[in-house]
Amino acid sequence: MKKQITHSLDYIGVSSASLCLIHCLLFPLVTFIPIGITHNHYVDLIFALIGLFAVVKILKTNTELYIKLILSISMSVIIGCVLITIFFHYHSLLLYFGGVGMIVGHLLNFKNHKH
């Protein structure tokens, strides 16, 4: 049962991080098209909170330490970048590294529990 919950958390984490990364990569391109779409920073915050939920739950399991470190550092980078964006309106490129780190961390965790 616990293994199934961890797999679900990894699916949630990978999906959220992938959608967030796609959103962050494609949104700047959409703003050049004059269709009236503006960037809402709270969408970024929602992605970060979904990812944070999955990471906190995984940190409470008996996952390998290096996976916990990858997920923790990546989540810290993402939340820091989102807060900087909300308060200072500055888009840091570190957000992309955090997103890739989240995807890698969840995939490693999924692979680790598969064995």
Results as ranks from 00 to 15, higher is better:
100 V>H: 02
82 V>M: 00
25 L>C: 08
30 V>T: 13
25 L>T: 14
43 V>G: 01
46 I>V: 11
52 L>Y: 10
9 L>S: 00
21 L>K: 06
80 G>T: 07
32 F>W: 04
35 I>C: 05
87 F>W: 09
82 V>I: 09
44 D>H: 13
49 L>N: 06
78 I>T: 12
47 F>H: 04
49 L>C: 11
19 L>Q: 10
97 F>C: 06
103 I>Q: 01
112 N>Y: 12
62 N>E: 07
58 I>N: 12
7 H>E: 09
64 E>F: 13
74 S>E: 01
76 S>Q: 01
52 L>T: 15
29 L>W: 10
108 L>A: 02
24 C>L: 06
88 F>P: 06
101 G>L: 02
13 G>H: 00
88 F>C: 14
37 I>H: 10
68 K>F: 06
104 V>S: 02
30 V>H: 03
70 I>E: 04
80 G>Q: 01
23 H>D: 09
28 P>G: 04
1 M>G: 07
68 K>N: 05
79 I>Y: 00
103 I>W: 04
20 C>D: 11
37 I>A: 12
62 N>G: 01
12 I>G: 04
93 L>E: 07
85 T>F: 15
39 H>D: 15
6 T>W: 08
21 L>R: 05
98 G>D: 12
81 C>S: 09
13 G>Q: 00
61 T>M: 03
37 I>P: 14
40 N>L: 07
16 S>K: 01
55 V>S: 05
109 N>D: 12
28 P>D: 03
63 T>A: 02
5 I>C: 04
29 L>N: 08
70 I>S: 14
98 G>I: 02
16 S>D: 14
47 F>D: 01
8 S>Y: 06
27 F>C: 05
40 N>I: 03
110 F>I: 02
18 S>D: 03
65 L>C: 05
114 K>F: 07
50 I>H: 00
39 H>V: 02
105 G>H: 05
110 F>Q: 10
102 M>C: 13
67 I>M: 09
85 T>L: 13
52 L>G: 15
38 T>W: 04
6 T>Q: 13
33 I>L: 11
